[in-house]
Design a protein around this nucleic acid. Structure first.
Lengths: 109, 109
DNA sequence: TTACTGCCATAGACAAACTATGTCAGTAAG
DNA sequence: CTTACTGACATAGTTTGTCTATGGCAGTAA
């Protein structure tokens, strides 16, 4: 069972969708949620996660504020912005379009 | 109808699968076949196609020989090798594993 | 006091697709 | 017959995004 290999371009979609389901999360929670809901297949490395969150912040798809976890650790809590919700919808439809096209090509003879 | 945006990592899979269906093709035919079987969604640029074919050659997944097209042009004909068929099977199962995991994560609340 | 873990963060490596450009040989147009 | 177009192959350079590796800091447990 080796995890890994998130296709470039899909990480922001996974993060946005995860945030839209849970409302407010910090980094570790996001990675953990993706790992578990994917059946331990998609392991987001920290070196991928935080740069991705930075990009989402810069583009305004998410906002962040510092807080404290249940375990009394400092953590940065992210949530979707209104623009982020629109972006999520756009990326979802784009994903389905592309993925549908790929599976069409992959039909065996 | 804007085409484009082949997810990194999936191009070799598309090429291998296309060759496995048609037996022997040159570059233009491969790109054309992918474009049409994807419903004009996946447009493989030449600057992506030929480097990808080079990689497949180097790795031994495909073989190539020069020939002449129906329109009397010189062209390089590619076909799958035995190793290429094994590779295709491996990439197919990997693809389904990863995209299955992604769609699992993308289920709405 | 030491070590471990949760949590954030960055720098550098690397892979792969894109843009732009170039070549060459047939064929069609004028 | 010369020009332009198209089919087909090819490469250099840019960009994007994930990974590896590393590091720091603050609680908590040994």
């Amino acid at each position: 069972m080796k995890p890994n290999d998130i296709p470039p371009g899909s990480l922001s979609l996974l993060i946005l969708n995860t945030l839209s389901r849970h409302g407010e999360m910090h980094g570790y929670e996001i990675a953990d949620s993706i790992l578990h809901t994917s059946g331990d297949v998609l392991q987001v490395e920290e070196g991928s996660l935080y740069p991705a969150l930075q990009r989402l912040l810069v583009q305004g798809w998410v906002s962040a504020e510092w807080g404290t976890t249940a375990g009394n650790r400092r953590a940065r809590y992210y949530r979707l912005t209104a623009a982020g919700r629109k972006q999520l919808a756009a990326e979802l439809s784009h994903f389905h379009r592309i993925y549908g096209a790929i599976t069409a090509v992959l039909q065996p003879a």
